Simulated scan of single mutants.
Amino acid sequence: MLIEYLIILTFTFSTASGSGLHGPCEGNEQCGTLDTYCKNGICVCKDDFVVFYDHCVQLATPHIQCMHKSNCIAILGQKGFCKSHKCVCKSFHHFYNNQCIKSKGLDEQCDNDHQCYCGQDCNDKIECAKGICACKYGFKVYRRRCIPDGNVTNVISSLPSLPSSICNLKPDSTSRLLPMIFFIIKFWHL
């Protein structure tokens, strides 16, 4: 019984995290490290990111040339540093409003939307909701990222089409039908 549990736990962990940086892949969704994509069968850092140990760190944009860490700190704040003569944000930080700020992942405490980060391509899909970083409405968590929630799209597309006569009503007669239209949509959603 214990062996079965360990096998299931290991399998769940490996599918949830995906391939690491420089790991094998067949598509972008298999790359588990933030800000990576699949290129020629290997997970690599996206444009405007560079390798730093086992993950990708974000370059300042536009790119800022540097010779020493102090050049970057003066521009990006205390969380900037110099890597390969370009200013980047330290690990677990991202570039926002010309500064490197601490990234807050899904389910972490936050004060503002800009603190929440689940990858560069996820910025418009995550928010700080009630003090916790979460996927915005219409998105769901998948491998520490927010992806479109097909169920939301399916609910909207499955709503019954209203007769064209309702759409052509004059404003004064529509006001009497709004509660009925709301009821139809609400009833259909249940």
Rank of each mutant, 00 (worst) to 15 (best):
Leu6Tyr: 07
Ile184Ala: 05
Thr12Gln: 14
His22Ala: 13
Phe49Asn: 12
Ser84Thr: 08
Ser19Thr: 07
Gly131Val: 13
Gly138Pro: 03
Phe49His: 13
Met180Cys: 13
Ser14Val: 15
Lys140Met: 10
Ser14His: 15
Thr36Ile: 12
Tyr142Glu: 08
Cys87Ala: 05
Val51Ile: 14
Ala129Gly: 03
Pro179Arg: 09
Cys116Thr: 02
Ser165Cys: 10
Asp111Phe: 12
His63Ala: 08
Glu29His: 10
Lys90Cys: 11
Asp149Trp: 08
Asn71Leu: 02
Cys135Thr: 01
Ile126Ala: 00
Cys100Lys: 06
Gln120Glu: 10
Asn98Arg: 06
Gly131Cys: 10
Tyr96Phe: 09
Pro62Gln: 08
Cys116Gly: 02
Lys136Thr: 11
Lys136Leu: 08
Asp54Met: 12
Ile3His: 05
Ile132Gly: 15
Pro62Thr: 02
Ser158Asp: 04
Leu178His: 05
His189Ser: 06
Glu4Ser: 14
Ser14Tyr: 07
His114Pro: 01
Ile75Ala: 04
Val51Thr: 11
Asn97Gly: 10
Cys25Ser: 02
Thr61Gly: 07
Cys89Met: 07
Ala129Pro: 01
Ile147Val: 14
Phe13Glu: 11
Ala16Tyr: 12
Gln120Tyr: 14
Cys66Ser: 02
Tyr117Gly: 07
His22Ser: 15
Gly23His: 07
Tyr53Cys: 15
His68Ile: 00
Ile147Asp: 09
Gly32Glu: 14
Phe95Asp: 00
Tyr37Leu: 10
Leu162Glu: 13
Lys86Pro: 05
Asp54Arg: 15
Asp111Pro: 08
Gln78Val: 10
Arg145Trp: 06
Cys128Phe: 03
Glu4His: 12
Val50Ile: 11
Tyr96Pro: 01
Val141Ser: 05
Pro148Ala: 08
Phe183His: 14
Ser158Phe: 05
Asn28Phe: 04
Asn98Val: 02
Ile184Met: 05
His85Asp: 11
Phe187Met: 12
Ser14Asn: 13
Thr36Met: 12
Gly77Gln: 03
Cys122Gln: 02
Ser164Trp: 15
Cys66Ala: 04
Thr15Cys: 07
Val141Glu: 12
Gly119Pro: 01
Cys118Ile: 09
Gln78Arg: 15
Ala60Val: 00
Gln120Ala: 15
Ser91Glu: 12
Asp121Pro: 03
Cys38Gly: 03
His22Lys: 11
Leu76Phe: 01
Phe13Lys: 09
Val57Gly: 06
Cys43Ser: 09
Gly80Phe: 00
Glu29Met: 14
Ser157Arg: 07
Cys66Glu: 01
Cys116Asn: 01
Ala60Cys: 06
Cys43Phe: 08
Tyr37Met: 14
Met67Val: 04
Ile7Pro: 12
Lys90Met: 11
Leu59Asp: 06
Ser165Trp: 11
Gly18His: 03
Val51Asp: 15
Cys118Asp: 07
Ser165Asn: 09
Gln99Pro: 07
Asp121Cys: 03
